[in-house]
């Protein structure tokens, strides 16, 4: 039961996390229309994936793994671009919150990007959903104790959804200025993890085959088959044995972006954070 729970949790979290972040962001921006579209998109993606998973099973077809990884890579990169845009937006607005004119200009700008963000949530669910559906079907079809194995997998996905909802709730509860300050740094690490994961899936898709030597051994932190590993890999994209390429893109993204986020938005705003950040070391 536990092994399938862990996999369900990890696969589910990768989607639930992005949806939770997008939902909180849209809610904070009071984009109710885009918010509603987001939920329609998410539900639509869930239905599509469930139908796909069951359909593949009924037709005794295999999930085209390579195309699945290609899809994960593209959506992953789009998600990195979008989260980066959110980081920049949040960063710029932490300082100019009270600027009404600026805010009004944003509303016009956001009207388009709100829809784009809602669409991002749809893609995020589609990205992990099909593979998760195939996994769920396989779990309920297990050779030994299928009911228990399947229940474990389903529970894992369910807990992931609850965590995604908690991220959304937490993101809405805290007040706007705190939301801006906290989310910046967290989002940098989420995006850096997504970028490393995109490189990982790009390798599995057959697109990227360089720099595949193992760079670090993080198995002590990301112990395979543990709930902890599902949380760390699912939310921050950290693999047990990251390759040189994965560590490289992680550092190249995380370091400058962390500096950018911690740097005050405007020179005259007093710096509340010390310039040296403990988060510059890669995933230790």
């Amino acid at each position: 039961m536990l092994p399938t729970f862990v996999i369900g949790l990890r696969e589910g979290l990768e989607a639930a996390l992005i949806v939770g972040i997008v939902a909180a962001f849209l809610r904070q921006r009071e984009q109710t229309k885009a918010f509603r579209w987001m939920w329609i998109g998410v539900l639509g993606a869930v239905v599509l994936c469930a139908a796909g998973g069951i359909g593949l099973h009924l037709a005794s077809e295999q999930l085209p793994q390579r195309q699945q990884e290609q899809l994960e890579t593209i959506v992953g990169l789009v998600a990195v671009a979008m989260i980066t845009w959110m980081i920049v937006w949040v960063h710029n607005h932490a300082a100019t919150l009270k600027d009404d004119l600026q805010l009004r200009a944003d509303v016009a700008l956001i009207a388009g990007s709100g829809a784009a963000l809602a669409f991002m949530a749809f893609l995020a669910v589609l990205r992990e959903g099909l593979e998760t559906a195939v996994f769920l079907v396989a779990a309920f079809d297990a050779s030994t104790r299928p009911a228990l194995t399947g229940t474990g997998a389903a529970l894992g996905v369910l807990v992931a959804v609850i965590l995604g909802y908690a991220i959304y709730k937490g993101g809405v509860k805290i007040n706007l200025s705190k939301f801006f300050r906290i989310t910046g740094v967290v989002l940098v690490f989420v995006a850096a993890g997504l970028l490393a994961t995109a490189l990982h899936t790009a390798h599995e898709a057959g697109w990227f085959n360089s720099l595949q030597e193992q760079a670090l051994n993080l198995e002590w932190l990301v112990e395979r088959g543990s709930v902890q590993s599902a949380l760390i890999t699912g939310m921050f994209g950290i693999q047990p044995e990251p390759t040189v390429g994965e560590v490289l893109v992680w550092v190249l993204y995380a370091v400058p972006m962390t500096i950018y986020v911690l740097r005050p938005a405007k020179p005259r705003v007093k710096a509340t954070t010390p310039p040296s950040s403990p988060s510059l070391e890669p995933a230790v």
Binding site: Q65, E131, A138
Partner: peptide, 28 residues
Amino acid sequence: DNVSEFEVLQGGKIVGEVENIAPGLQRS
């Protein structure tokens, strides 16, 4: 519990793979 993935590689390139094979599961 520690293994859930099977890959076939040639010259560092993944030729084919399956993931998420938890105990009791089977995929082709």
